[in-house]
Each structure stands twice: as C-alpha cells, then as structure tokens.
Design a protein around this nucleic acid. Structure first.
Lengths: 333, 333
DNA sequence: TGGGCATGCTAAGGCGTTTAAGCACTTTCA
DNA sequence: TGAAAGTGCTTAAACGCCTTAGCATGCCCA
C-alpha cells in the first residue's frame, strides 16, 4: 500500500513551492499570475501521480465542507425519498454531497440532528421542520448559515422555503369529490399544527363551504402503530359513515385503505394528498394530489446553492402548484 | 453572534494546559492520571460554556470521521430505503453518522461515489455492489478499510457480506406456485449476473426441476423506461401465456402488474421477491418473499462497527433466511 | 540613474485538535 | 540516603492544507 501523496510531495517533485501548487489547484493560477507553462506542468504531474487533496484539511482551513445537511421527516416515505433522490443528483452535479437523517417528525430528534450537522460544519441545510424547532432554526439563521425549509415552513420565521400549494390542492380534491355527488366528505389528517396540515385543512374547509356540505374530520396520531391507527380509523368510519374520504397524506391513505380492506367495509370515494407509484395499480386506482417533486427539489437546491455561492441574499419563498390526478377511486357513475 | 469557543479558551479560563483539557474530554483522565477534582472542574466548565470540539480538526488529527458511507442502489426503492432507515438509527445510537448516495446500479457512478467517500475519509463502507466494481472494492480492502456488502456480493472477492437466502426464497415461492397447480410458471428477472439474481434464478430452476415443469424466463433491462418495460412484458405474456409469474424483485412485480392492468389481461398467479407495504393492499393481495430487513441492517452495522472497534478481524459472511408470505395472488381454489 | 510597476513565485503562519515526550516534584524502598 | 517509581501536569510537534504578505527580478519611463 503506497503512502498518501501530499501537496508538499508535488511541490518537491517539481522543485517549486507548496503555495504555487495550491494556487494552481484552486484555479487561481491566472489571478496569481502563475505562468502557463508551470501551470500545465503542475496539472499534468498531479494527474500522473493521482494526487487528491485531503478534504478534511481543506475544510478545516477554509471552513467549507461542500456538504449539505438534509434533515427529512422519513426517508422511507416515497415522497421524501424521491425528493432526496433528486436533491442528491443535483447537488452532486454541482460538487456538493448530501448527508441526511430522518427525524420521524420528532422535535427532540430534529434539534439533535441539526446540532450534529452543525458540529460537522455542513455548508447548508435543507429541512422539513418538525414542530418546536423555531429556536434551533433561528440560531442557524443568526449564524448566517443558509437554510431552506420544505414541505412546510415556520410561520414565525423569515426563512427560505419551498412548499406546494396545499390549500388549492386540498380544495381541488375535495371539490372534485363534491362534484361527483358525494355528500359526506371526510378529511383524515394528523394531530399537528404544521403549515402543510393547516393548509390542507383550510383547502378542505373552503370546498366544504363552497358546496354547502358538513365537515367530518378525523385526526390521527402520527406516532401510533399501524394496527391502532387502523382500528381508530375503522371506528370513525362506523361512526360517521362518510361517502367520501380525503386523506391529508399518502401514508394516511394507505392506513385508511388497509382499514377498509381489513374490516371488509364498503369502499367510499377516496382521494389522497401526495401521489404514490402504486396508487395507479390499486383497484380502484386512487385519485391523488400530486406534488411536483422534481420542481421542488430543483428549487430547493438552487436556492441553497445560489446562497452558498453568494449570488443571492434575499428571501426566497416558493409555492408550487400541485396537480389533481383523477383516477377511479373518486369517480361516481 | 458569539464567537466559537475553542479548547484553548477552556484551558485559559481554567489556567491549565490544552493537553489536560483534551485528555479529560477524551475520557483519558484516569489513564493520564489527571486528578478527579480538576477533571470535574473542567467538565463542569465545558458544560457551562457549551464548548463543542471542532469535529473537522479532530478528524484531521485522528484520521477518524465517525462517518459511514452508504452506497445504495436506489434510496427511492422501499427495500433499500427501509434498510437505510434502520442502519441510520443503529449507527446513530453508536455515535456514527451516515452519508449516502444512490448508484442506480451503474458501474461508473458507483466507482465515483466510492472514491468520493474515500476523499471524505469515511471510516467504513456499506455497499450494494453493482457489476464491475471488483477492483474498486479490492482497493478499499487493500487499504484496510472496513467494507460490508449487502443484497449481493462479489464472488471473486473475500469480503464481508450480508445477503438473504435467495436460492431458498425463490425456490419456496416457485414451489408454492407449483403446489397451487400452476403449470406454466414464468420467472421475470433482469439482464444481470449479480449474485442475488443468479441465485433467484437458481432457486426458480430447482423448483422447476422438482416439479418437472418447463421454465419460462423473461429478462428485462433495468435501465428501460417504464412504458417500454410494460410493453415488453406484455408481449411476453401474449407470447407465452404463463399461468403464474414469479418476479425477481418488487419493482419488476410492480411493472408487471401495471402491464397486466394497463392491457386488461387476465391475472395469472403472482409472487414477488421482496415484499412491499402495499402488496397486502392490492386486489388480489400479492404473495411475496419477504427479506428480514431489520435483521439485515443489524448484521450490517454490527459487522462494520465491530470491525471499526477492532473487535473483529475475521471475515463475516451472513446469509439470512427469507420468509414466504402467502397472500391471495398465488392461491387457487 | 533611479523610482515605480508588473511579473512570477515563496515563506510562514494558522485552521483546532491530539499526543509523544518530558518536567518538576513527591513518595517508596533497598 | 539516593535511585527508582509514581504523580499531575505541560510543551511542542504534528495532521494537510490555504492564504497573507512579501521578495527578487526585470522593465519602463522620466
């Protein structure tokens, strides 16, 4: 096993100073007026011996790690996984790496993870904020660290964020169910005051108003195990017998469908916020509000990297449209 | 915004040397015979002022980053996402972080990613090897870097790995279909010589032998876009009209089901390698060979961390049993 | 003829830690 | 009583890179 090559080895090999090599490797040859001939010689030699700078030393010195911290609710949720996938690819192509962790939407874990990323000196943060992390995020902002939130934001805080138009998405889905002639349209959502949930509720209520219907709302605990949630939802169905259900997230929809199947209940009209690859495979296929995943990832990474490059100082708050994908589950007649 | 506290600040505050503080913070107080009184004083003061060591400097000096590189085929695939989730949690609780990237099973990308992790000095590697990376992995081994492969392994290389019992899993699924009276059982797999695919084919063939049936094998390109794959599979069905299909991975099963649905074909008996949360929601529910995801993650992280702690030097090659979960899709009568 | 300026490069300090080696003093023990 | 061993710390050198400040040379122009 050959020993690791250092920048000083390169300098020695070529009989020049470390400084010169460093300038050249960092693209400052022109600026520092290193002659073209030498520049070429250095570059060639570096390639020949396969020298790679030690990123740790570099980071220690420059304070930059070229790493982005991705703090996400749950990487096993297809919505987040797909976002992560796009972010990863885009960051990669611009020379940044991703380091990620899942928070399960737990405050304490989120705070801890952000601190951890801070300890690692990540250059920027992409976060799905859980509740109660206002101070933590504020402290990032105070330290001038670039932050972009997504999926939801923190109302008290002036941060960059990228979300989808939750109000309109929920309105469209609910209105569509109403137009299909459903009278008892239920909303299944979480115990949560996060903005995306609040806005989906809002959209649902507006549609209920438009069509002069009665609201039926079922709230579920995120932390509950699946069977508890299934039973819980089942008793709601028994109790209120809605003829349509709008689920505020895809995993709520999945749990709901399991409950219906497991208890052999008649299938109400159904729609879900967030699409899922398999929704078009169900019988019936499931109507969903589909978020523009790639566009979201695009915006996130652009905002963050532009900020890192110093190209952009102002606040960016982006709301992207969601699209209602109508499938069998919501159709009547 | 207050300036970052350094270890030297702690030393200055307390009128002692940096070395002493460092020893204490690294749990070497006893070993280095620092008095208990001083130890306590330092610890208290550190907590009071909220000092956190700079991990970069630490890593530069020690050569350890406490980061594990996770090189995975596709984080958006639920099988991998769930493994990642468990690994993340387990690593976390033992003081390690995860940095991950998806390879799409492309050789070049995989090689590049591993090099990247190397540049970042990750302490260990967990890899789903794509084809053609033998040399790259060999070079990690030569450098004494801890590596564990999973889902598949590299036959030419003596490495640690954790896989499921693909032969038996595939055999069981195929045999089960045969026992249900199916006569024309097809295998849908990938153009791939990776071990997991080879073994699943092997298991399928053994069951075909046992029951004296004819094999019908359809191979698909991993890279094809969905519609191409759907059409491709559709013409196979038209051509061979199998009465049962065993899909070698969950995404093949999903594509296959989409083809059947889209072309309104009669549903053959179906089974899939790899389970999926939603398979129990389909109509019919889908029979699957379920890999022990948590056990796999457990083994992976244990092998790696024990190696990092120097507790274990020998080779660990683990084969875990898969379980056939029988659901409606494969039942007759 | 000498001050100013452009050119092409280098010396050395610093980023924030860890750690080998050592120092001054006390105790032990033959 | 003096050498060895123990005690409780400290000094200073890494780790591998970036970057400020500056040096030597040659040329221009007044």
């Amino acid at each position: 096993m050959k020993k690791k090559i250092l920048i000083s080895d390169i300098a020695k090999d070529l009989g020049i100073s470390v400084t010169t090599v460093s300038f050249i490797l960092n693209g400052k040859a022109k600026e520092k007026r290193i002659s073209e001939g030498l520049t070429k010689r250095v570059l060639e030699h570096v390639k020949k011996v396969g020298y790679k700078p030690n990123e740790l030393a570099k980071s220690l010195r420059t304070g930059k790690t070229k790493i982005i911290g991705l703090v996400i609710e749950d990487i096993a949720n297809p919505f987040f996984a797909n976002i992560a996938r796009f972010i990863e690819a885009k960051a990669y192509s611009r020379g940044y790496r991703i380091i990620y962790c899942s928070t399960d939407n737990e405050t304490e874990k989120t705070v801890e993870l952000i601190q951890l990323f801070r300890d690692r000196h990540v250059d920027g943060y992409i976060i799905t904020p859980s509740e109660g992390i206002t101070d933590t995020v504020q402290s990032l902002l105070s330290s001038q660290l670039p932050v972009v939130l997504f999926d939801r934001y923190i109302p008290d805080l002036d941060t960059n964020y990228v979300v989808s138009d939750n109000v309109k998405g929920a309105y469209d889905a609910t209105a569509h169910l109403a137009q299909q002639g459903c009278k008892r349209i239920a909303l299944v959502t979480l115990y949560s005051s996060q903005t995306q949930m609040r806005d989906r509720m809002d959209g649902y209520m507006r549609a209920i108003d438009t069509y002069k219907l009665q609201p039926y709302v079922k709230k579920v605990n995120l932390g509950d195990d699946e069977q508890t949630a299934i039973n819980d939802f089942h008793s709601f169905l028994e109790d209120q017998h809605p003829d349509a259900v709008f689920f505020a997230t895809n995993y709520l929809a999945i749990t709901g469908l399991k409950a219906i199947k497991q208890h052999h209940m008649p299938m109400p009209a159904v729609a879900s916020y967030d699409d899922h690859t398999l929704f078009k495979l169900f019988s019936p296929t499931i109507t969903a509000v589909s978020q523009p995943i790639e566009a979201i990832a695009d915006e996130l990474i652009n905002i963050l990297l532009n900020q890192l490059d110093g190209k952009e100082k102002g606040l960016k708050q982006v709301v992207l449209p969601s699209e209602l994908v109508i499938r069998e589950s919501s159709m009547r007649g």
